[in-house]
Protein backbone atom coordinates (compact mmCIF):
# COMPACT_ATOMS: atom_id res chain seq x y z
CA UNK A 1 0.00 0.00 0.00
CA UNK A 2 2.68 2.48 1.04
CA UNK A 3 6.32 2.29 0.03
CA UNK A 4 8.67 4.94 1.35
CA UNK A 5 12.09 4.84 -0.22
CA UNK A 6 15.07 6.87 1.04
CA UNK A 7 12.87 9.87 1.92
CA UNK A 8 14.69 13.09 2.75
CA UNK A 9 12.84 16.25 3.81
CA UNK A 10 13.88 19.63 5.11
CA UNK A 11 12.37 22.74 6.52
CA UNK A 12 14.40 25.72 5.34
CA UNK A 13 18.05 24.69 5.56
CA UNK A 14 17.48 22.09 8.22
CA UNK A 15 17.24 18.49 7.11
CA UNK A 16 14.84 16.58 9.33
CA UNK A 17 14.19 13.32 7.50
CA UNK A 18 17.45 11.75 6.40
CA UNK A 19 16.51 8.69 4.44
CA UNK A 20 13.37 6.92 5.63
CA UNK A 21 12.57 3.47 4.31
CA UNK A 22 9.26 1.88 5.23
CA UNK A 23 6.74 -0.44 3.66
CA UNK A 24 3.18 -0.77 4.93
CA UNK A 25 0.80 -3.43 3.60
CA UNK A 26 -2.98 -3.60 3.77
CA UNK A 27 -4.24 -4.95 7.07
CA UNK A 28 -1.13 -3.90 9.02
CA UNK A 29 -0.68 -1.56 11.95
CA UNK A 30 2.71 0.13 12.23
CA UNK A 31 3.83 2.14 15.21
CA UNK A 32 6.45 4.82 14.78
CA UNK A 33 8.10 5.75 18.03
CA UNK A 34 10.98 7.93 18.95
CA UNK A 35 12.15 10.70 21.24
CA UNK A 36 11.07 14.30 20.78
CA UNK A 37 12.54 15.95 17.71
CA UNK A 38 13.36 12.68 16.00
CA UNK A 39 11.17 13.54 12.97
CA UNK A 40 8.00 11.56 13.72
CA UNK A 41 5.52 14.37 13.15
CA UNK A 42 7.53 15.61 10.17
CA UNK A 43 7.12 12.23 8.54
CA UNK A 44 3.35 12.37 9.10
CA UNK A 45 3.17 15.92 7.71
CA UNK A 46 5.29 15.13 4.66
CA UNK A 47 3.10 12.16 3.82
CA UNK A 48 -0.02 14.34 4.11
CA UNK A 49 1.58 17.02 1.93
CA UNK A 50 2.13 19.96 4.22
CA UNK A 51 3.89 22.65 2.22
CA UNK A 52 6.25 23.79 4.99
CA UNK A 53 8.47 20.83 4.22
CA UNK A 54 10.54 20.34 1.14
CA UNK A 55 11.20 16.83 -0.01
CA UNK A 56 14.83 16.84 -1.16
CA UNK A 57 15.23 13.17 -2.14
CA UNK A 58 13.49 9.84 -2.19
CA UNK A 59 10.12 8.58 -3.30
CA UNK A 60 6.80 7.53 -1.83
CA UNK A 61 4.41 5.21 -3.58
CA UNK A 62 0.83 5.00 -2.35
CA UNK A 63 -1.51 2.46 -3.93
CA UNK A 64 0.66 2.45 -7.03
CA UNK A 65 0.73 6.24 -7.40
CA UNK A 66 3.53 8.70 -6.80
CA UNK A 67 2.25 10.25 -3.59
CA UNK A 68 4.62 13.21 -3.69
CA UNK A 69 3.18 14.31 -7.03
CA UNK A 70 -0.32 14.62 -5.58
CA UNK A 71 -1.78 17.75 -3.97
CA UNK A 72 -2.74 17.41 -0.30
CA UNK A 73 -6.45 17.22 -1.18
CA UNK A 74 -5.85 14.54 -3.81
CA UNK A 75 -3.83 12.49 -1.32
CA UNK A 76 -6.85 12.64 0.97
CA UNK A 77 -9.17 11.74 -1.89
CA UNK A 78 -6.94 8.76 -2.73
CA UNK A 79 -7.53 7.50 0.80
CA UNK A 80 -4.82 8.96 3.01
CA UNK A 81 -5.98 10.34 6.31
CA UNK A 82 -4.05 12.23 8.95
CA UNK A 83 -5.42 12.50 12.48
CA UNK A 84 -3.84 15.78 13.57
CA UNK A 85 -1.83 16.18 16.73
CA UNK A 86 -3.37 19.65 17.07
CA UNK A 87 -6.77 19.65 15.33
CA UNK A 88 -7.61 23.07 13.90
CA UNK A 89 -10.64 25.14 14.90
CA UNK A 90 -12.94 26.52 12.21
CA UNK A 91 -15.48 28.92 13.73
CA UNK A 92 -19.00 28.89 12.30
CA UNK A 93 -18.53 25.63 10.40
CA UNK A 94 -20.12 22.62 12.04
CA UNK A 95 -18.45 19.23 11.96
CA UNK A 96 -21.48 17.94 10.06
CA UNK A 97 -21.22 20.61 7.40
CA UNK A 98 -17.45 20.18 7.17
CA UNK A 99 -17.71 16.44 6.72
CA UNK A 100 -20.56 16.67 4.26
CA UNK A 101 -18.33 18.84 2.08
CA UNK A 102 -15.35 16.51 2.55
CA UNK A 103 -17.28 13.29 1.90
CA UNK A 104 -18.80 14.64 -1.28
CA UNK A 105 -15.55 16.11 -2.58
CA UNK A 106 -13.95 12.71 -2.13
CA UNK A 107 -16.88 10.98 -3.82
CA UNK A 108 -16.75 13.41 -6.70
CA UNK A 109 -13.05 12.68 -7.20
CA UNK A 110 -13.85 9.00 -7.38
CA UNK A 111 -16.62 9.61 -9.89
CA UNK A 112 -19.37 8.76 -7.41
CA UNK A 113 -22.61 10.68 -7.00
CA UNK A 114 -22.96 13.01 -4.04
CA UNK A 115 -24.52 11.45 -0.98
CA UNK A 116 -28.07 12.53 -0.22
CA UNK A 117 -28.89 14.09 3.12
CA UNK A 118 -30.74 11.08 4.50
CA UNK A 119 -27.95 8.58 3.80
CA UNK A 120 -25.42 11.04 5.11
CA UNK A 121 -27.23 11.51 8.40
CA UNK A 122 -27.69 7.77 8.74
CA UNK A 123 -23.99 7.17 8.19
CA UNK A 124 -23.20 9.90 10.68
CA UNK A 125 -25.36 8.33 13.32
CA UNK A 126 -23.80 4.91 12.86
CA UNK A 127 -20.24 6.16 12.89
CA UNK A 128 -20.79 8.42 15.87
CA UNK A 129 -21.97 5.41 17.85
CA UNK A 130 -19.03 3.38 16.66
CA UNK A 131 -16.49 5.87 17.95
CA UNK A 132 -18.63 6.94 20.93
CA UNK A 133 -18.87 10.61 20.18
CA UNK A 134 -21.74 12.76 21.39
CA UNK A 135 -23.87 13.79 18.40
CA UNK A 136 -24.48 17.21 19.95
CA UNK A 137 -20.77 17.91 19.53
CA UNK A 138 -21.09 17.46 15.77
CA UNK A 139 -23.53 20.35 15.43
CA UNK A 140 -21.07 22.72 17.03
CA UNK A 141 -18.38 24.69 15.24
CA UNK A 142 -15.55 22.38 14.28
CA UNK A 143 -13.24 21.89 17.27
CA UNK A 144 -14.10 25.33 18.63
CA UNK A 145 -14.13 25.19 22.41
CA UNK A 146 -13.68 21.40 22.37
CA UNK A 147 -11.64 19.81 25.13
CA UNK A 148 -8.45 18.00 24.15
CA UNK A 149 -10.25 14.67 24.39
CA UNK A 150 -13.20 15.87 22.32
CA UNK A 151 -10.88 17.08 19.59
CA UNK A 152 -9.12 13.73 19.36
CA UNK A 153 -12.39 11.85 19.39
CA UNK A 154 -13.59 14.12 16.60
CA UNK A 155 -10.49 13.19 14.58
CA UNK A 156 -11.29 9.50 14.92
CA UNK A 157 -14.92 10.21 14.04
CA UNK A 158 -13.80 11.98 10.86
CA UNK A 159 -11.60 9.02 10.08
CA UNK A 160 -14.62 6.75 10.47
CA UNK A 161 -16.66 8.95 8.13
CA UNK A 162 -14.02 9.25 5.41
CA UNK A 163 -13.09 5.53 5.49
CA UNK A 164 -9.43 5.98 4.51
CA UNK A 165 -7.18 3.24 3.13
CA UNK A 166 -4.28 4.50 5.18
CA UNK A 167 -4.74 6.39 8.44
CA UNK A 168 -1.85 8.16 10.12
CA UNK A 169 -2.46 8.99 13.77
CA UNK A 170 -0.08 11.73 14.81
CA UNK A 171 0.39 11.67 18.59
CA UNK A 172 -3.28 10.98 19.00
CA UNK A 173 -2.62 9.99 22.60
CA UNK A 174 -1.07 13.28 23.65
CA UNK A 175 -3.20 15.21 26.10
CA UNK A 176 -5.61 12.34 26.70
CA UNK A 177 -6.54 10.89 30.05
CA UNK A 178 -6.77 7.13 30.29
CA UNK A 179 -10.53 6.92 29.68
CA UNK A 180 -10.38 9.12 26.61
CA UNK A 181 -7.39 7.13 25.39
CA UNK A 182 -9.34 3.90 25.70
CA UNK A 183 -12.31 5.29 23.74
CA UNK A 184 -10.13 6.73 21.00
CA UNK A 185 -8.16 3.50 20.69
CA UNK A 186 -11.27 1.35 20.62
CA UNK A 187 -12.63 3.53 17.80
CA UNK A 188 -9.44 3.02 15.81
CA UNK A 189 -9.56 -0.74 16.42
CA UNK A 190 -13.14 -0.97 15.22
CA UNK A 191 -12.19 0.74 11.99
CA UNK A 192 -9.41 -1.73 11.30
CA UNK A 193 -9.95 -4.11 8.39
CA UNK A 194 -7.85 -6.36 6.13
CA UNK A 195 -8.18 -3.68 3.42
CA UNK A 196 -6.81 -0.71 5.31
CA UNK A 197 -3.69 0.11 7.22
CA UNK A 198 -2.76 2.34 10.14
CA UNK A 199 0.40 4.16 11.12
CA UNK A 200 0.43 5.18 14.76
CA UNK A 201 2.93 7.90 15.59
CA UNK A 202 3.54 8.09 19.33
CA UNK A 203 5.99 9.04 21.95
CA UNK A 204 4.73 6.69 24.63
CA UNK A 205 4.13 2.99 24.72
CA UNK A 206 0.81 3.24 26.57
CA UNK A 207 -1.30 3.82 23.42
CA UNK A 208 0.08 0.57 22.05
CA UNK A 209 -1.54 -1.30 24.93
CA UNK A 210 -4.80 -0.49 23.22
CA UNK A 211 -3.84 -0.31 19.55
CA UNK A 212 -1.64 -3.34 19.16
CA UNK A 213 0.88 -2.85 16.35
CA UNK A 214 2.18 -5.52 14.01
CA UNK A 215 5.44 -3.63 13.67
CA UNK A 216 7.25 -1.04 15.74
CA UNK A 217 9.84 1.32 14.25
CA UNK A 218 12.10 3.61 16.16
CA UNK A 219 12.86 6.92 14.52
CA UNK A 220 15.88 8.81 15.64
CA UNK A 221 17.69 11.68 14.02
CA UNK A 222 15.64 11.40 10.83
CA UNK A 223 16.14 7.71 10.27
CA UNK A 224 14.45 4.49 11.28
CA UNK A 225 17.17 2.99 13.45
CA UNK A 226 15.40 -0.09 14.67
CA UNK A 227 12.36 -2.12 13.70
CA UNK A 228 10.68 -4.96 15.50
CA UNK A 229 7.39 -6.30 16.76
CA UNK A 230 5.29 -5.04 19.67
CA UNK A 231 7.85 -6.37 22.15
CA UNK A 232 10.19 -3.63 21.00
CA UNK A 233 7.74 -1.05 22.32
CA UNK A 234 7.73 -2.70 25.74
CA UNK A 235 11.50 -2.77 25.77
CA UNK A 236 11.54 0.96 24.97
CA UNK A 237 9.11 1.64 27.75
CA UNK A 238 11.39 -0.12 30.17
CA UNK A 239 14.79 1.10 29.01
CA UNK A 240 14.08 4.44 27.36
CA UNK A 241 15.59 5.52 24.06
CA UNK A 242 19.21 5.96 25.05
CA UNK A 243 20.34 2.40 24.34
CA UNK A 244 18.92 2.73 20.82
CA UNK A 245 20.77 5.99 20.27
CA UNK A 246 23.95 4.32 21.47
CA UNK A 247 23.34 1.35 19.21
CA UNK A 248 22.67 3.62 16.27
CA UNK A 249 25.86 5.59 16.74
CA UNK A 250 28.02 2.51 17.07
Amino acid sequence: MLKINNLHARIGEKEILKGINLEVKAGEVHAIMGPNGSGKSTLASVLAGREDYEVSAGSVEFLGKDLLELSPENRAREGLFLAFQYPVEIPGVTTINFLKTAVNEIRKYRGEAAMDAVSFLKMMREKSQLVEIDQALLSRSLNEGFSGGEKKRNEVFQMAMLEPKLAILDETDSGLDIDALRIVASGVNKLKSPQNATIVVTHYQRLLDYIVPDFVHVLWNGRIVKSGTKELALELEEKGYDWIKAEAIS
Binding site: A48, G49, A76, I90, F98, A102, E105, L162
Partner: peptide, 10 residues
Protein backbone atom coordinates in the same frame (compact mmCIF):
# COMPACT_ATOMS: atom_id res chain seq x y z
CA UNK B 1 -7.04 25.84 8.61
CA UNK B 2 -6.62 25.47 4.88
CA UNK B 3 -4.27 22.51 5.20
CA UNK B 4 -6.69 20.85 7.60
CA UNK B 5 -9.46 21.19 4.98
CA UNK B 6 -7.11 19.99 2.22
CA UNK B 7 -6.28 16.93 4.28
CA UNK B 8 -9.97 16.07 4.35
CA UNK B 9 -10.19 16.25 0.57
CA UNK B 10 -11.40 19.85 0.29
Amino acid sequence: QIFYCNQRGI
